[in-house]
Nucleic acid binder design. Structure first.
Lengths: 195, 195
DNA sequence: GTCTATATCTCGATAGAC
DNA sequence: GTCTATCGAGATATAGAC
C-alpha cells in the first residue's frame, strides 16, 4: 500500500513549505487549505493524507518558518555579535527579504489559537531568546531585546508608510544598542569577540 | 423619518463599544457582524443603518479602543513619569485589566487589512508615541519605548504560560528603565517632575 | 496517495415588512 | 431604525473512484 514512502515525504515537505510561507505572510484565517495545496501543486482532497487538521498544519508551519528563519540568519555563518544579529533580524541591510519571522508576523494570530499552538509558538520564542543567551547575553537582557526586535518588526509591518516603517526598524536597532550598553556585564560579549 | 436621532446615536455608541471590545480581544476575522450586534442587543439587519461595511466598523472600533485605553491610563490624572506610564500600560500593578490595547492586540491583524485601516492604526500609534514625547522624551527614544512596550504586551498574550507572560512584562519594564537611563538628556524629565 | 464531488456550515451583504 | 428572510460565496472536512 505505501506507494513510494519517499514520494509522500516530498509532498509533505512541499505542503509544509507552502504553508510556512503563506501562513507567515497572511495569517491563519486568510489562508485556506485550498490555498496551501494549490501552492504546493496538489488538490484539497490530498491534504488529509498528511495532516489531520488545519490547526496541526499551522503548528508544523510555525516550526518550519522558524527553521527557515534560523537558516537565513546563519547563512553566512553565525552572526559575529548581537548587533549584527539584530541588523540581520531587522533586515536593515538585506536586499532580498525572506518570508518573514513567524514570531513577529503571527503574534496576534497566536493569541486566538488553541493552547497547543500557543505552546509551539512559546517554544520557538524561547529558542530565539536562548540563541541570544548563547551569544553571551543574560536571560533577562535577551528577553528585553526580543521584545524590542519582535515588537519593531510587527509594528513596521502594520503601519501604512514605508518611511515610517524604516524609521521604526532603525530606532529599534538603536534601542538594542542602548540596552546592550546599559548592561556592561553582557555587552562585553556582544561587541567583542565571536561566541 | 428620523425617529429620534439621539436614539440612533445611542445604538451606534453601543455597537461601537461592543466592536471595540470584541475586535480587540478576538481580532477581525474571528468576530462576525452577528457577534457585535448580538453583544449590542440588536440584530444583523440593523447594522447597515450605522456602518457601511465591517471594515469601516473595524476602523472606528480601533479609534474607540484607543480612546478607552487613553481614558484608562489617565483615570487617576496623567502619569507622573514615563516609568509609571509604562507600569500602567503593562498592567503590572492593575487588578482589573481593561479590554486591551489595540496597538498590541491587533498588530498582526492590521498588516492584513486594506490601506485605510493601516492608516487609522498608524494614526493611533503616532498618538501614543506623541504622548511620550509630551512627557519630555525625544521622538526617537519614544519610538524605542513603544517598540518595547507594545512588543512585550503582544508577546505576553501569545505565550501559553502565565508565569512566562509575567516574566516578559517585568523584563519589559526593566528594558524601559534601561532605555531611559541610556538617554540622560531625556530621563531628567521622566524621573523628575510631572509634565 | 491523489483526485473529484459533496455535505454542512458560516459569513457579509441585501431586500422588504413594520 | 430595526426586524426576519435570503442570496451567494467560500470554508473545513469527508466519501468514494482510481
Amino acid at each position: 500500500m505505501p506507494c513510494k514512502p519517499e514520494k509522500k515525504q516530498q509532498s509533505r515537505a512541499r505542503i509544509l513549505q507552502s504553508a510556512a510561507t503563506l501562513f507567515t505572510r497572511n495569517g491563519f484565517d486568510a489562508i485556506s487549505i485550498d490555498d496551501v495545496m494549490r501552492d504546493a501543486g496538489l488538490t484539497r482532497g490530498a491534504f488529509y493524507a498528511h495532516f489531520s487538521s488545519k490547526t496541526e498544519l499551522y503548528r508544523e508551519a510555525i516550526l518550519e518558518g522558524a527553521r527557515v528563519g534560523r537558516a537565513k540568519l546563519f547563512c553566512k555563518g553565525p552572526p559575529a555579535n548581537v548587533l549584527e544579529f539584530a541588523r540581520h533580524y531587522l533586515e536593515l541591510d538585506v536586499d532580498t527579504p525572506w518570508q518573514g519571522c513567524p514570531l513577529a508576523f503571527l503574534v496576534t494570530d497566536i493569541a486566538h489559537q488553541v493552547p497547543e499552538v500557543k505552546k509551539t509558538y512559546t517554544q520557538v520564542l524561547k529558542g530565539y531568546r536562548d540563541m541570544l543567551v548563547a551569544m553571551g547575553l543574560g536571560e533577562l537582557l535577551a528577553m528585553q531585546i526580543c521584545n524590542q526586535l519582535i515588537g519593531a518588526r510587527a509594528l513596521a509591518r502594520a503601519v501604512d508608510a514605508p518611511e515610517f516603517s524604516r524609521h521604526i526598524l532603525l530606532q529599534s536597532l538603536e534601542g538594542v544598542r542602548a540596552l546592550l550598553e546599559a548592561n556592561p556585564a553582557d555587552s562585553q560579549y556582544s561587541e567583542g569577540a565571536n561566541l
